[in-house]
Nucleic acid binder design. Structure first.
Lengths: 190, 190
DNA sequence: TGAAACATACCAACTGGACGGTATCATGTC
DNA sequence: GACATGATACCGTCCAGTTGGTATGTTTCA
């Protein structure tokens, strides 16, 4: 009947659009204020269409969380592959990904969303497990508190990025650069 | 008529109880899932009673935010007063307060709540302004990226504390100790 | 002084809108 | 034609906020 029916059906693309829309709206108004109607509308589809892909609100949120994690994964893997120095490699990649250097606005949304999902109690554990698994896999856990500090500071930057662009960009860059060199100095004697 | 009517009226205490209840419930289920009924019940009062003190849900959340900030203020001030070394004093106090060494469970709730409120878009700016004001007042902004890193890492610890007690406490303590010494080394040449 | 008059603190029941979810129908694709 | 995809209409529930009360404090004034 309507025009929407007549268009080419591309379920995979739509699914992605729905997730993108959900991410954007979550970041703008908070995960708790995410409304199915709004997500569907933003993706140019009816609520029925949305519920076809995600049978419930909960399912949508979980998919959102998984998408977040897998995006992180992909970017981390890319960074790891491009880094020849083994020591502190993971922490460096983590820093790079979390601080989101040279990243598109669309990627940025997903970064912010990560923090917001982290604040949701139902997804905290999921995140905790993700990080623990990665740390175990790259086995930097026993290395040095310096690496820990670098990663923690990366989280801090990530967090402060959420509060708008109030911080001086050059200062931010200097901090990131300094953190990066910290991981390259090698773990000195404690 | 009912027993509740007959009890001693202590509006100030009740107000505090309501805020405490709201904080606890927010941390447990997320700010977005905070229900007025539940808050009222947890404080041993009816929803009407709650709405007498906070005319709307929004008002309650704002009061919650203010309470959070003023609690931070008080603890920061206490740390500052107890620290004879001027250089990096604020960053040290910040680290101490945010990582919440030797803190009661009740205080801990408020710490966690801070992060959750930070994740709420409507309160992000409020927090950003708070921090900016404090940084300006103690004028550590121009000092050293090391101080920045310490504060950012403190945020990171704070954040990771939210994901349950999965981290090794002694390791956590080591990190905090190291961060502390970083602020005491003094700003070396960049 | 004390008791009316007012103000504050709270309760119980209700309402109206928002929103998640379902049921059913229409259309595209293989 | 059979299945996947998506639209429309509708229902039930949840919950913030309203309303109209009752009980407890506090002030005023005869």
């Amino acid at each position: 009947m309507t025009e929407a029916h007549r268009r080419k059906k591309q379920p995979i693309e739509l699914r992605q659009q729905l997730l993108d829309a959900a991410a954007t709206l979550s970041v703008r108004a908070g995960v708790g204020n995410l409304r199915l109607d709004a997500v569907a509308a933003a993706a140019g589809v009816s609520k029925g269409g949305l519920l076809h892909h995600f049978p419930s609100r909960q399912a949508l949120l979980e998919a959102l969380c998984e998408e977040c994690l897998s995006r992180c994964d992909r970017r981390i893997e890319a960074e790891l592959a491009a880094d020849p120095v083994v020591a502190g490699r993971f922490s460096r990649a983590y820093l790079q990904v979390m601080t989101g250097v040279e990243v598109t606005e669309r990627e940025r949304v997903w970064g912010l969303l990560s923090v917001m999902l982290f604040a949701e109690p139902e997804f905290r554990d999921r995140w905790g497990r993700w990080l623990a698994a990665h740390l175990a896999r790259h086995d930097e856990t026993g290395q040095s508190v310096l690496f820990d500090i670098v990663r923690l500071a990366a989280d801090g930057i990530w967090l402060s990025d959420m509060s708008g662009e109030n911080s001086d960009p050059s200062r931010r860059a200097a901090i990131i650069a300094r953190l990066r060199t910290l991981t390259l100095d090698g773990p000195e004697a404690e």
